[in-house]
């Protein structure tokens, strides 16, 4: 298979997650073989509309199907979100590296997601809950503008039922104040509430760069090693295969060396980029 040749993906199902975000479940239309790891991404495209990277929001292939959760950000994403079951889009991938789940084994797992950045963390959350014995304590700290923007809120609430203190959420503007696990404020404030030794834990974070920077700085202050904090980075991509150099951070390419990097490797660019 030629990794640069787009294949055709068939939209199997579309779910509206909120005002501007949709989950599209896809399968390959012409080829059977496909596999991926959480954290990787596909380049999805429409003829004449361009192509852009999207992370997987599903944990693994189910009957050949996988899911991307996409926020309408511009013309391409708006058009993709308008597709319906039965429509076709082009797909290249999977590309990039994966969340270091092996490295997380035996440690407390802190997951911090913001906005659309919650989507690429969903497979990790599902994996961790399904394999709880492999990890110490689990903390899912999620933030968004409003409750409506808290992606997969009901799903996560169901999955963490009976695990008090696992799922903590913040919104910039709260509507239903009675929910004790949803606060008003910044997601970083939730880090004060978790009860683990940062030295024995590992953090995965995805969201706006400013959020990731504050999360990383606070965790480092709390004693976490910058190489135990993993951030999923976003850059404009062209080729997706470390050929053109357009997605670089320093000498690293987000499409191939990333999108997931230890914060220790990103830190020195933090003042200019992250």
């Amino acid at each position: 298979m030629n990794p640069l040749e787009p294949r055709r993906a068939l939209v199997r199902e579309k779910i509206q997650e909120n005002r501007e975000t949709y989950s599209l479940t896809l399968s390959l239309a012409d080829h059977d073989h496909f596999s991926y790891r959480p954290g990787q991404f596909n380049m999805l495209g429409l003829p004449g509309m361009g192509e852009a990277p999207f992370s997987f929001s599903s944990l693994h292939l189910e009957r050949g199907r996988f899911t991307h959760t996409i926020r309408e950000a511009g013309s391409l994403t708006r058009s993709i979100c308008q597709l319906a079951a039965g429509d076709i889009l082009s797909i290249r991938g999977p590309y990039g590296n994966e969340w270091p789940l092996e490295k997380a084994k035996g440690r407390h797992l802190i997951i911090v997601g913001g906005g659309i950045g919650i989507a690429p963390l969903r497979p990790v959350i599902r994996h961790a809950l399904g394999n709880g014995e492999e990890y110490g304590r689990l903390y899912f700290l999620l933030g968004a503008r409003t409750e409506d923007d808290l992606l997969f809120r009901e799903e996560f609430e169901k999955l963490t039922a009976g695990r008090d203190g696992t799922l903590l959420m913040t919104v910039d503007r709260g509507e239903k104040k009675e929910l004790s696990h949803i606060r008003e404020g910044l997601v970083t404030a939730l880090l004060d509430e978790i009860d683990v030794d940062p030295e024995e834990s590992i953090t995965f974070t995805c969201g706006p760069e400013l959020m990731m920077r504050f999360v990383a700085r606070q965790l480092i202050q709390m004693g976490q090693d910058p190489y135990d904090i993993f951030v999923s980075m976003e850059r404009r991509m062209k080729c997706g295969i470390a050929h053109c150099g357009h997605c670089q951070i320093g000498a690293m390419y987000v499409c191939k060396d990333g999108p997931i990097f230890p914060y220790g490797d990103i830190k020195r660019f933090a003042d200019t980029m992250l």
């Binding site: 640069l4 509309m49 192509e51 852009a52 082009s90 290249r92 062209k238 295969i241 053109c244």
Partner: peptide, 8 residues
């Protein structure tokens, strides 16, 4: 616009 590169 992407795709910008393809091999054959």
């Amino acid at each position: 616009d992407n795709p910008c590169v393809v091999t054959y």
